[in-house]
């Protein structure tokens, strides 16, 4: 039985970007306020899940041709590399560095290596969640 779900698919295409940019906002707000890589990853995964529910798995795979196992691998390399970098300069494991820079558009900005670690956590959470949902969600 073919169901006419034009409104749902149009709304999903629109709302996907709202949820994704909210996830980016939560990721960068996690430095000083509640938020961070884990919540941002979960919100991004829920945005992709909304696309999967509104369309189907093959369409979303054509839309976002990502193998999520590789996303998990890249995230783990980034997180562990950031954590292990401080060992090569003579500091204890997981020591983070920060400094203030003058960027052309943002003005005085504090850049912190914990953001790179958080990006690794973000990629791992997105990859693991989407792998689980794609594996147990398909019907055959």
């Amino acid at each position: 039985m073919k169901i006419n779900n034009v409104i749902l698919q149009f709304t999903a295409k629109f709302v996907f970007f709202i949820i994704f940019f909210f996830a980016v906002h939560i990721f960068f707000a996690g430095h000083y306020t509640p938020g961070g890589g884990f919540v941002g990853g979960l919100v991004t995964a829920s945005a992709i899940v909304l696309l999967i529910i509104a369309f189907d798995l093959n369409t979303v795979q054509k839309l976002l041709p990502i193998n999520y196992i590789y996303v998990v691998a890249v995230g783990l390399i980034l997180a562990l590399g950031t954590a292990a970098f401080s060992m090569f300069v003579g500091e204890p494991f997981f020591t983070h560095f920060f400094d203030y820079f003058y960027l052309p558009l943002f003005g005085k900005t504090s850049l912190h290596t914990a953001a790179l670690f958080d990006l690794g956590v973000y990629l791992v959470v997105v990859g693991v969640t989407m792998t689980i949902i794609q594996t147990i969600g398909e019907d055959e």
Binding site: I3, I52, I53, F55, D56, L57, N58, T59, I133, G137, E138, D139, E140
Partner: peptide, 10 residues
């Protein structure tokens, strides 16, 4: 409406 949530081919 359809009986399952995530489908392979719509």
């Amino acid at each position: 409406e359809k009986g399952d949530i995530i489908t392979r081919d719509d």
